[in-house]
Amino acid sequence: MNVSIDKNSGYCFGVEYAIQMAEDELGNSAELYCLGDIVHNRMEVERLHQQGLRVIDREQLGALHDCKVLIRAHGEPPETYELALRNNLTLIDASCPVVLKLQNRVKHAFDASQRQDGQIVIYGQPGHAEVAGLTGQTGNRAIIVMNEADLDQVDFTRPVTLFSQTTKSTAGFYHMKQLIEERIAAAGGTVESFDANDSICRQVSNREPQLRKFAVEHDVIVFVSGRKSSNGKALFSVVNQTNPRSYFVENEQELSEAWFEGAQSVGICGATSTPMWLMQRVADRIQEIGAAVPA
């Protein structure tokens, strides 16, 4: 049984940058705080914990003084930086440049919308760290939508400016854009009052066609990702639609021998938050299974 890892899978630039910053800082100190999981992958979080990275939540952040805290790639709202100044915290800011640019765009769009009685709408996952950072640019007044029902929060007689969480599905964004256009028309408005901004990271969106091609090249696909990863859920959906013999796992312990019966070729791929070392560990385990499973 042939087993191969998708060369286009694994960390995006933003995640790789954040982890490198964490490792560099831990090389000089025994302990470093991180506001939230540095990456939505339990295995990688555990690896870095062994090196001294301590994950904290917002309540714990408020109790910290005179120490260093890592800001992960997802970015943070303005109030996090204000708290850091009050508590004399040194921030190791590993916010992804793509996310920072989007935060700036959202802030400028919000300021402009205030003069026009408009609304900022963000296509994204409620509660996601990146979305929290984006809505923070609007004083938490942005409307977050994930599906058509969420659009009931929007007043379509007023101007609408749409952005997307950087890791959402491109198809999902354009579907949401179409739904908003239909709602505006039904409310008697015009498309001139609607500004749709495709703010999805191209390093993420470009993986969709690459994954479709990879998925059809193999009998079985094993997609490796943390279950909390928004990007992982979106990309697995792409893979599963292309190849129904696709399976989602967090690590090699979740593999089932039955998945590989009759398979000649197995492809391994993952999210932008999936480390290459973990995909390799899964590949090694599948090789062991392949030696015991009849082709």
Rank of each mutant, 00 (worst) to 15 (best):
I5T: 01
D6A: 10
K7F: 12
C12T: 10
M21I: 09
A22Y: 00
E23H: 03
N28C: 12
S29H: 13
A30N: 13
A30G: 14
E31L: 10
C34M: 05
L35F: 00
I38Y: 05
V39L: 05
H40G: 13
H40I: 12
R42A: 14
Q50M: 15
Q50H: 14
Q50I: 11
Q50R: 12
Q51H: 08
G52V: 12
R54T: 12
V55P: 05
I56K: 06
L61K: 15
L61C: 10
L64R: 05
C67A: 01
L70W: 02
R72A: 09
A73Q: 03
H74G: 03
H74D: 00
H74P: 03
P78W: 00
T80C: 07
L83I: 14
L83S: 14
A84T: 00
L89P: 00
T90P: 08
D93V: 05
A94M: 04
S95Q: 08
S95E: 09
S95V: 15
S95M: 13
C96K: 01
P97T: 04
V98H: 11
L102H: 06
N104T: 13
R105L: 15
R105A: 15
K107F: 11
K107I: 02
D111H: 15
D111G: 13
R115L: 14
Q119N: 11
I120L: 04
V121Q: 01
V121K: 02
A129Q: 10
E130W: 03
E130Y: 07
V131L: 07
V131Y: 03
T135F: 02
T135I: 11
T135A: 05
T135N: 06
G136M: 01
Q137V: 05
Q137L: 04
A142T: 03
I143E: 09
I144N: 01
I144S: 04
V145D: 06
M146V: 15
A149K: 14
L151A: 10
Q153M: 15
V154D: 09
V154F: 04
D155L: 09
T157H: 13
F163E: 01
S164A: 15
T167W: 06
K168Q: 14
T170Q: 11
A171G: 12
F173Y: 06
K177F: 15
A185C: 08
A185L: 08
A187T: 09
V191C: 14
S193Q: 11
D198N: 13
I200M: 02
N206Y: 06
P209D: 10
L211R: 04
R212H: 07
F214L: 02
V216R: 14
H218P: 10
F223T: 02
F223Y: 08
S225G: 01
G226R: 04
N231I: 04
L235N: 01
S237L: 14
V239T: 06
N240V: 08
N243S: 03
P244G: 12
Y247W: 04
E252R: 11
Q253M: 11
E254M: 08
L255K: 03
S256N: 11
F260S: 03
E261C: 09
A263D: 08
A263N: 05
G270I: 00
G270C: 00
G270P: 01
A271L: 07
T272P: 09
T272G: 15
S273F: 09
S273E: 08
P275D: 02
W277Y: 09
R281E: 15
V282C: 02
V282P: 05
V282A: 00
I289W: 07
G290S: 06
G290E: 00
V293C: 03
P294V: 03
